[in-house]
């Protein structure tokens, strides 16, 4: 039973993500989402009590999704440099197969903090994702590959860079496919963070 409800929730999340990406966050309403899923609005509220709650559930969903991928990379027995490359690849891959996810993260979550104020204090809704990034950094420093520094200066460098590239891609400014930048970007990030 629980699984069925969970499945439906995920369906709603996927649908909402698409609608937010194509029509914009503010102009998409709960009735719009219900309509495109052929659900009644009343039933829809059984799953998410408000649009704000749906909005924060979506960001948690994305964080869990990315966190899981990162964890797989973290648990591999490879060098920090290899992990760096895999994270870049994973992020770009997500941006191309699930563009609405990264889009949501960058354009909705980071740009409309007021929507998330009550339900997502601090980094609460992106905990899984941030935890894995922290583990990547921590293990890198511990084994001597990465330089010890403030977490946010490293986090900003890594995620800001990747987010910026995906943003440029979304704006159709990038001349090449994202994948073609993996090599250089990995090199740049690793060089900036490395202890050498």
């Amino acid at each position: 039973m629980l699984d069925k409800k969970q499945l439906k929730k995920e369906q709603i999340i996927e649908c909402a993500l698409e609608l937010f990406a194509s029509r914009g966050f503010y102009s998409t309403t709960i009735p719009d989402i219900a309509k495109s899923l052929k659900m009644s609005v009343g039933n829809m509220y059984n799953y998410f009590k408000s649009k704000d709650i749906l909005a924060s559930e979506i960001i948690k969903y994305i964080s869990v999704y990315l966190g899981k991928k990162l964890r797989e990379i973290n648990e591999e027995d490879i060098s920090t440099k290899e992990k760096t490359r895999k994270i870049v690849e994973m992020y770009f891959k997500t941006a191309s197969v699930k563009p609405e996810m990264i889009d949501y993260f960058l354009r909705i979550y980071l740009s409309n903090r007021e929507v998330f104020r009550d339900t997502c204090e601090g980094m609460l809704c992106v905990n899984e994702f941030v935890t894995e990034i922290m583990i990547y950094f921590e293990e890198g420093v511990r084994c001597g590959d990465l330089r010890e520094q403030d977490f946010f200066s490293a986090f900003g460098l890594f995620m800001g860079y990747l987010g910026g590239m995906v943003f440029l891609k979304g704006e159709d400014i990038l001349p090449k496919d994202l994948n073609e930048y993996v090599e250089d970007i990995t090199y740049n990030i690793y060089k900036a963070l490395s202890s050498q």
């Binding site: 601090g122 609460l124 941030v130 921590e138």
Partner: peptide, 15 residues
Amino acid sequence: NKRVYLTLAGITKAF
């Protein structure tokens, strides 16, 4: 373990 610690830390740090 580290993952547990960081998850909890992330939650409490938010408040």
